[in-house]
Computed example of a mutant assay.
Amino acid sequence: MSILARKVAAGLDTAMDRTVAPGFTRIGMGVRSRLPGWPADPPPGALAGRVAAVTGATSGLGLATVEELARLGATVRLVVRDVPKGERVRAEILQRVPGADLRVDRCDVADLDDVRRFVAEADGLDDLDLLVHNAGAMPATRTESAQGHELTMALHLLGPLLMTELLRPALKGSVDGARVVFVTSGGMYGQRLRADDPEYVRGEYSGTTAYARSKRAQVELMPVLAERWGTDGISVHATHPGWADTPGVVDSLPTFHRVLGPLLRDARGGADTTVWLAAVRPAPPGGLLWHDRRDRPTHLLSRTRTGDAERREMWEWARDQAGLTG
């Protein structure tokens, strides 16, 4: 492949990313997957012998992630709030992926006490190779977790931080290095980090803004988490799915879904980079934001850029609220 062809492909990819709409839709992935330099799909059996845990696994991106990981041979734990629904989803996946090794575990990721219970009681999680933080919510009104934290920040940041920290011994034992993936959102591009108001107690509450703020916090803390967990051979990544057609989008953003429905990716397309990050060997560099199998900038607007002091303040707040030490 010529250098010119690669440059043209990279330029087109970047242009779609910076203009947002083309790159985030199904068109973006359709074009990129045909460009020179598109990374190869993981080979069959790429995750044979590996154990993965996926939160929010009963619908949308989580369900698609579980199914694709199972197709690649992984043993997958479905970490869900609703166990009967989780068992139904497990049965559905087994019809499409006969012989898949799947198990359902109960955990409300927003409830820090329940996260502690889940890790303490979970059987067979002594060895873990992959942890996907996919559970998400976008409440219309300000809602608090069991510990009194604003729900989106508890569910998208505090719960995942605590769960990963408690599972570090299991992840540390991964043969070729464990991976942690935060499924974030392109919506975070419109928000700056709010270390001054992490619980969203100031101003008029907006569910979409709260969601985007919590996702911005995930992305901003990637370098900190990569350094913290990297000492145990654990690589941490964030990936955003673009605009995907999921039940969460239908329920929380009905107008957006009605207008852009034909251009939205299906759940499998939205989960593609999460699965690729889980299976590609060797592991990609940690601490980065990924979309369509390529690391992406964390800011598209100058007004959202974060300074080191603000990032440090956010990390110290999250660390303390999640009860992490060190």
Rank of each mutant, 00 (worst) to 15 (best):
residue 116 R to C: 07
residue 35 L to R: 09
residue 10 A to W: 08
residue 300 L to W: 10
residue 67 E to V: 01
residue 16 M to D: 09
residue 242 G to S: 09
residue 217 A to K: 01
residue 115 V to W: 00
residue 233 G to A: 09
residue 3 I to L: 14
residue 225 L to D: 12
residue 290 W to V: 08
residue 62 G to Y: 08
residue 143 T to H: 11
residue 207 G to P: 06
residue 71 R to I: 00
residue 46 A to H: 04
residue 315 W to A: 03
residue 175 V to T: 13
residue 271 A to M: 08
residue 265 R to E: 10
residue 68 E to G: 10
residue 20 V to I: 15
residue 208 T to Q: 12
residue 320 D to T: 15
residue 3 I to G: 15
residue 66 V to R: 11
residue 170 A to C: 05
residue 137 A to L: 12
residue 296 R to C: 06
residue 133 H to V: 03
residue 127 D to T: 14
residue 170 A to M: 04
residue 58 T to H: 02
residue 85 K to E: 15
residue 67 E to N: 05
residue 136 G to M: 05
residue 184 T to C: 08
residue 303 R to C: 11
residue 40 A to I: 03
residue 126 D to F: 12
residue 64 A to M: 05
residue 317 W to P: 10
residue 254 P to R: 02
residue 284 P to K: 02
residue 120 A to P: 06
residue 279 A to W: 05
residue 156 H to M: 01
residue 127 D to V: 13
residue 280 V to C: 12
residue 297 P to T: 04
residue 307 G to H: 03
residue 179 R to C: 09
residue 289 L to N: 06
residue 77 R to D: 07
residue 69 L to R: 07
residue 190 G to E: 04
residue 153 M to A: 14
residue 170 A to N: 02
residue 97 V to H: 00
residue 106 R to K: 07
residue 207 G to T: 01
residue 113 D to C: 14
residue 182 F to M: 06
residue 40 A to K: 12
residue 82 D to M: 00
residue 192 R to C: 05
residue 232 D to W: 14
residue 129 D to V: 00
residue 36 P to L: 05
residue 323 G to C: 06
residue 279 A to Y: 03
residue 304 T to K: 00
residue 148 G to P: 11
residue 116 R to T: 13
residue 163 M to V: 14
residue 179 R to W: 13
residue 117 R to I: 03
residue 221 L to P: 13
residue 270 G to M: 09
residue 9 A to T: 07
residue 75 T to V: 01
residue 85 K to N: 15
residue 299 H to Y: 14
residue 108 D to S: 04
residue 70 A to W: 07
residue 36 P to G: 05
residue 291 H to L: 03
residue 91 A to Q: 15
residue 247 P to H: 03
residue 78 L to R: 05
residue 209 T to Y: 12
residue 305 R to A: 09
residue 218 Q to T: 04
residue 124 G to V: 04
residue 297 P to I: 00
residue 109 V to H: 04
residue 239 T to A: 14
residue 279 A to K: 05
residue 188 M to D: 10
residue 219 V to I: 11
residue 127 D to F: 11
residue 69 L to P: 08
residue 46 A to G: 11
residue 80 V to P: 11
residue 30 G to R: 13
residue 194 R to K: 14
residue 56 G to Q: 11
residue 98 P to M: 01
residue 237 H to M: 03
residue 47 L to C: 02
residue 28 G to I: 01
residue 53 A to L: 13
residue 259 V to M: 13
residue 272 D to G: 14
residue 244 A to W: 08
residue 306 T to E: 01
residue 285 P to F: 01
residue 240 H to V: 03
residue 14 T to N: 08
residue 238 A to Y: 07
residue 200 Y to K: 15
residue 223 P to Y: 01
residue 216 R to A: 08
residue 202 R to H: 10
residue 96 R to W: 08
residue 167 L to N: 10
residue 319 R to N: 13
residue 234 I to T: 09
residue 88 R to I: 13
residue 23 G to L: 07
residue 234 I to G: 07
residue 31 V to N: 12
residue 76 V to S: 06
residue 109 V to F: 04
residue 296 R to W: 09
residue 123 D to F: 01
residue 26 R to L: 07
residue 238 A to G: 12
residue 211 Y to I: 02
residue 137 A to P: 07
residue 183 V to S: 10
residue 182 F to Q: 05
residue 95 Q to L: 03
residue 29 M to I: 11
residue 151 L to Y: 14
residue 63 L to Q: 11
residue 56 G to K: 06
residue 118 F to G: 10
residue 313 E to S: 08
residue 37 G to R: 00
